[in-house]
Design a binder for these strands. Sequence first.
DNA 1: CTGTTAGCGCATTCAG
DNA 2: CTGAATGCGCTAACAG
Lengths: 335, 335
Amino acid sequence: MVTAYDVAAQAGVSVGTVSRYLTGNGYVSEAARQRIAAAVAELGYIQNRAAASLTTKKTGLLGFVVSQLSNPFTAEVAAALGDEARADGYGVVISDSNGDPDLAIQAITLLRSHDVDGLIVTPPESPAYNDALLAAARSIPVVGIGLRTNPMVTDLVSGDTRGGARLAMSHLLALGHSRIAYVGGSNMASGRFEGYRDSLTESGIEINADLISLGTMDREAGFNAVQRFLTQPAPVTAVFAANDALALGVLQGAHRLGVRVPQQLSVIGYDNVDMAVHAIPPLTTVAQNMVGMGRAAIRLLMDRLSGAAPAGEPRQVVLESTLVIRESCAEPAGQ
Amino acid sequence: MVTAYDVAAQAGVSVGTVSRYLTGNGYVSEAARQRIAAAVAELGYIQNRAAASLTTKKTGLLGFVVSQLSNPFTAEVAAALGDEARADGYGVVISDSNGDPDLAIQAITLLRSHDVDGLIVTPPESPAYNDALLAAARSIPVVGIGLRTNPMVTDLVSGDTRGGARLAMSHLLALGHSRIAYVGGSNMASGRFEGYRDSLTESGIEINADLISLGTMDREAGFNAVQRFLTQPAPVTAVFAANDALALGVLQGAHRLGVRVPQQLSVIGYDNVDMAVHAIPPLTTVAQNMVGMGRAAIRLLMDRLSGAAPAGEPRQVVLESTLVIRESCAEPAGQ
DNA sequence: CTGTTAGCGCATTCAG
DNA sequence: CTGAATGCGCTAACAG
């Protein structure tokens, strides 16, 4: 391995000078600078940051604990986050927990043993994971994406899902729909469901349990739910799905019954995953600002690392969602 | 920061013993072992691997240079690779190059400065990137996924795209199609195109330039191509798309023309991305073994790192593709 | 502006 | 089986 000493020898200076050249701290004469640069190139020298971190206490590494890297939403955030980190000279170590709290804790330990300068974390939520996060937060800055610790000691970035849901509902309502169904996860406390419920109530429409399907958030659930909605005495004219996978299942279910979208049924999704544009018809959906989330997380971290934001008060940034209108919604047929 | 010295003091032993306990090298009495474990837990000690790597020359970190993390194909490979690496006690640092050779080179440098024990790389291909890989390969093992260096000095894992394409074509041919179009990338030397061409020739079907559309590999290209294929004097009865995005575009284009799939047109894709199952109709496609690729890459690396495969002869593993039959193909209408 | 030197936290000799 | 001592590659004083 070629070390800074080798470079120093080759350039006819001392290690100290090489170090100053590398870190940019302290003065180095132009002449020395040039000779060092030449030596670095000639020898193919690459700084050993692990050794440097021993003294500086900074590795230039950030840890990102994801719950599911193959989830398009996560992948997109990870990409944005990596780009932003690189711009600040940081590398990102990604650790996939597959939604398993135990693996997430292992990931935290792995990352901390590699001495990451900061941590970005996503769900799952679990007491033990929460504890691990709390412990980590005592030595390095931590920011959660869609995950808040208890007590809340970390910075947080989240999407305004409630507002996004209202966006979707307003669109449907403005089109003239009133029999609007909801398919979503089993958690009625989710922002998406709340947005659905509130929008309806505010429009003076009573919420009807027969028009609500709660369960898993995958394609099958959407496929099955819509068939139930459509075969009721008074069929629905629109469906709001809590995510795109669900919405795509709804599209398939409607197709199976020979119900045409958007002529006979309007469908709106949530997330604007890549495949939404590939759907038949292209899916109208709510887009979360994933790039913004990745960026925001890094900004939050950088402020802490640079001291711009002294430790203490956790901060929170909420990203607005936007409506992406494509072709899956129209006025109700009966109007 | 709590160090091994703190643990040693707390446990009433010396650092040497703590180190032996941590690494598993050398003997530690059961009594000492217990006291150390207790001290570690009590103090919340986390080993500093950067410091350890100074002596061992091993960081337990692997670098993965991807061309596009938000590409579902890549994300899936990354996930598999991360899982497999974790099983071996390694962490993975992912660096996204966004398909830019310069960024890829920067990524290599970053990764090497963090002293990764091995490197896994994907395209783009570029002379400068190739050089960077060659340089890296002189000090650590490198494995390419779908990317071979020149000269070929690194291990390689790739998918048998030619065989996969033949799988798709056989399916179409067996169904009775003979006017089969191809939509793909601009590179006619790709395995996918070769599989198309060879299958046709072997079946005694002349290849017809009017039935081939080469260009970008995205949805728009598929959307446009199919409209051309369908409005010819003798319309095609089937389309083989070189990837699923293209195939989904074909589906949309056919839908636009009122052509029903699979009754009037069969469509087959390649990659089996997540969205394939969400298509209308669900897309028959060729699945690459992405999990296998991720795993294989790690295995290759581990063999080098453990010394099981002495440096030298580059090895290659080719993963078979499989046909995933869903609902987008049927016998040609006219038969 | 630059050379010298003392650790950083740990794994590894080498004695005991 | 264990303690003490040495050095990994680098940065940060400090004295020139």
